[in-house]
Design a protein around this nucleic acid. Structure first.
Length: 391
DNA sequence: GGTAATGATTGCTA
DNA sequence: TAGCAATCATTACC
């Protein structure tokens, strides 16, 4: 603001006539008496402006009014505006041409993808569906989780839009205020419409920085929500009874070597409607918990052994009726897992007969257990179990 | 609310 | 890289 007197002062010495920026009507007739008169006018105006601050308020007001009504005032303001454009504002102008902020673009894209900005339907539920699919959760619980996720996302969306509206309103109000102020001031100091425009864009940039903060916080909130939704550990569900039974059946029927092959894991996963990784986790947990407390699992082991024995017996009688005794995979509920004819079954039956069910433990905690394929081999019999335990 | 059970994760090892 | 051991976090049950 204080640059104005300096500008004026610097140009008073040069003289307005003949100045490259001087409008035609101010430059014409510089050689005649009319031209001298105009020079005198401009000199007077500038002199009055320069001394206006030395005067009392009333005097200054009166002088200001007189200046405003002066016939040369519009021309003088034009010149001053042009000078301003060519000096200070041109430097600023060069800095204004900035590419769109990549950070802001990322935030906008994310908010759009998550359904926070953009149309109400679609993004959010799509994200929820994707998240649910990624979590690997099954069936009934998902709908409740979805609605919970959507409700929370909707809350975030609502807060975001309310805040955004507030910012936009505040920005508009402030912009209007500044524009009015500058228009008002343009009566007493040289302010071009271009300069007002520039000021508006500066204000908008300041407010968009605030908007970016809002977008960033919203993105963070969505990220937290998503991570909570996706975090399987928080949303742990016990496997259903049938799945646990299938896994236990396999475990106790392969007690001498409870290490299912990849194929067996896949088969179990399919049967239990869980992932292969979950099958691996389950067997890992089961092995270690069984080993730590065999006594506790004794009853469970006996139960599954009895069940497997019954299944094997049924299958055997059924097989003899069908005249096909050499089809090991047909026996028992475990079907393709080949639980009949295994050494583990022999051990289980032994335990039913009152023997201690320590066979599996006797092989050194499975440290020297044979490979899964050898255990599940149809040719394997009780003898192979003893060879296992002998290790 | 306390506790056991259980599925998942992490760090380490062979 | 699979498996072990410890641990975490949640669920189920009392």
């Amino acid at each position: 603001m204080d640059e104005q007197p300096r500008l004026m002062h610097s140009h008073t010495g040069v003289g307005m006539a003949g100045h490259p920026g001087l409008p035609q009507h101010m430059q014409e007739g510089t050689g005649g008496t009319d031209g001298d008169g105009r020079k005198q006018d401009i000199g007077d105006i500038l002199q009055q402006i320069m001394t206006i601050t030395d005067q009392s308020l009333d005097e200054a007001q009166a002088r200001k009014h007189a200046l405003n009504c002066h016939r040369m005032k519009p021309a003088l303001f034009n010149v001053l505006c042009e000078i301003k454009e060519k000096t200070v504002l041109s430097i600023r102008g060069a800095q204004e041409e900035e590419p769109p902020d990549p950070q802001l673009m990322r935030l906008d894209n994310m908010l759009l993808a998550e359904g926070v900005s953009g149309p109400e339907k679609g993004g959010g539920s799509a994200a929820a569906a994707a998240a649910a699919a990624a979590s690997g959760g099954a069936g009934a619980d998902n709908s409740a989780e979805h609605s919970d996720y959507r409700a929370k996302l909707s809350q975030i969306r609502q807060i975001y839009h309310t805040e955004l509206e507030k910012y936009e309103q505040a920005c508009n109000e402030f912009t209007t205020h500044v524009m009015n102020l500058l228009r008002e001031q343009s009566r007493t100091r040289p302010i071009s419409p271009k300069e007002i425009e520039r000021m508006v864009s500066i204000i908008h940039r300041k407010f968009s920085a605030i908007q970016m903060q809002l977008k960033q916080s919203t993105c963070e909130a969505v990220m937290i929500l998503r991570s909570r939704f996706l975090d399987a550990r928080r949303k742990r569900r016990n496997f259903n009874k049938q799945a646990t039974e299938i896994l236990n059946e396999y475990f106790y029927s392969h007690l001498s070597n409870p290490y299912p092959s990849e194929e067996a894991k896949e088969e179990l996963a399919k049967k239990c409607a869980i992932t292969v990784a979950q099958v691996s986790n389950w067997f890992g947990n089961k092995r270690i918990r069984y080993k730590k407390n065999i006594g506790k699992f004794q009853e469970e082991a006996n139960m599954y052994a009895a069940r497997t024995a019954v299944n094997a017996a049924n299958a055997s009688s059924h097989g003899s009726q069908a005249n096909s005794p050499s089809t090991p995979n047909s026996a028992g509920s475990a079907g393709s897992f080949n639980m009949s004819n295994s050494g583990d079954l022999f051990m289980s039956v032994q335990s039913l007969n009152g023997d201690s069910y320590q066979g599996a433990q006797a092989n050194g905690g499975w440290q020297d257990a044979p490979t899964p394929s050898s255990v599940t081999s149809p040719t394997e019999g009780p003898g192979s179990v003893h060879s296992d335990t002998s290790n």
